[in-house]
Amino acid sequence: MGSFALAATAPAFAGITLENEQGRLSFGGDVELDINSYNTQSGPIFTDDEIDTSDEYNQTGRILLDVSGERTSATGNYARFKTQPLIQTDGGFGLDDAWLALGNPGGLELKIGRFEAFDLFPLGQDVFVGYSGDTSDGLYADGQGYVYQAKEGRGRAGNSGQVLLSQRSGDLYAELATLFGDRTDLFENGNNGGTYHGFALEESKNSFIVRPVLAWTPGPWTLAVGAETNLVDDALVDERGEDISDRTGYGTRLSYAAGDWSVNANLAYLDAHQEDNLTLGLNALWGNAGLGYIHAHNEIDEVKPGAMGTLTEPGEYTVDTLYASYRFPDAIGIENFDLYLGAFYSRVDHEEIDDLDDADRYGGRLRFKYHF
């Protein structure tokens, strides 16, 4: 005989759960709609010429549907699944998570599908975070700023597959995540006219990225370290025959969460082909108010001759970003309906270019968030 009850399907969702002797099936989701005001840039930003900027006012957002289930054996072994289709306000469709997990009461779990692995660079309450150059850890584009956050192999990457093996034991957690398949989507335009330091990307094959993480959580503290690297040689090659996919990154975080306080201190370092990227982050959430700062220091060794002025100049550059947010919980007296205010400001400086003020980016956002 089955039962019908309201329950929490996950920390972020309050939904409907059906339970019987064979297992549990839950339905939930959320609505997230944003009204935005921000500036954008087109073309390269590392230039002495005037940068083409414009002001944007728009609405973005989506409805996320969450369906999850679990079945447990008499010995405590379990099978779980989750799928999260997205219906976007621009008429498109997407997908967040879609995975199957198999585990035992000893803390060992195998997860297969589409998901995000352990976060080595959490941003806190990141209602609106943008960067000068309009790129981040999810896309590398010549002539733009790059803010590495140890997330190139974290997951939800195009057509790539994912398998993760994890083990929990007391305060310790270890995982080995893999990401395999076509990863040309990390680079702007991939093999369709994409470049790296001005050199055209010409050949590619499937990558195999491994991402081990070890985390220790004694009480309110979390200390985590991890790395990510591609094991396949020449997975992406430029016009010189150089291996652009040779990228190894490292990340560490120290987090504290207790009462009204939540604090994250993050560090990430990437050793890429003829390029090094170091990023530091610090953010805090006190009650409903959040504040964060990110500093990226990057160095490029070589750029294609004749391409300077349209791409990132060789040498060192920094990207500094400040962001803030505030949450109004249970707005207008409706449970699970929150309003958020978010804003960011980001600037970039290059040692070889005198004035990059036109490359500053900033924006504000009003977010409507409803969990159902």
Score class of each variant (00 low, 15 high):
D246R: 14
S204W: 06
A284E: 11
D234G: 02
D276R: 10
G193A: 06
D233N: 12
G219R: 04
D301E: 15
T222C: 08
D260A: 15
T222R: 15
G198P: 07
S262T: 13
E228P: 00
N264C: 06
F199R: 12
R253M: 15
D276V: 02
T222D: 11
D271F: 04
G226T: 04
L278F: 03
Y250V: 00
A235I: 08
T248V: 10
P212I: 10
G194H: 02
G219I: 05
A257Q: 13
A257V: 03
I300N: 03
F208C: 05
A224W: 05
W286V: 08
V303A: 15
N230P: 01
K304P: 01
Y269A: 07
L231Y: 01
L231M: 12
A235L: 13
N264E: 15
K304L: 13
L201A: 06
N277V: 01
G198Y: 07
L236F: 03
L223D: 02
K205A: 15
N192S: 10
G249D: 09
A224P: 02
L214F: 10
D246M: 05
D246I: 05
L236D: 07
V210T: 00
G219A: 13
I244S: 03
W261S: 09
Y196W: 01
H297D: 14
T248W: 05
E202D: 13
G198N: 08
E239M: 05
Y256T: 01
L278N: 02
V225D: 08
V263L: 15
T217K: 10
H273M: 12
L267Q: 13
D185E: 14
R211S: 08
P212N: 08
R253H: 13
L280Y: 09
L186V: 10
L231C: 02
T252C: 11
K205F: 09
G194I: 05
I209M: 13
T222M: 14
G259R: 13
D238C: 09
N191K: 14
N298V: 04
I294M: 07
T252A: 15
R211F: 01
S262Q: 15
E302D: 14
Y250F: 13
F208N: 06
L231Q: 06
A272N: 07
G226Q: 10
N298L: 02
I209F: 07
N191G: 11
A284M: 15
T195C: 02
A272D: 14
G194Q: 03
L254H: 03
D246L: 08
L282E: 07
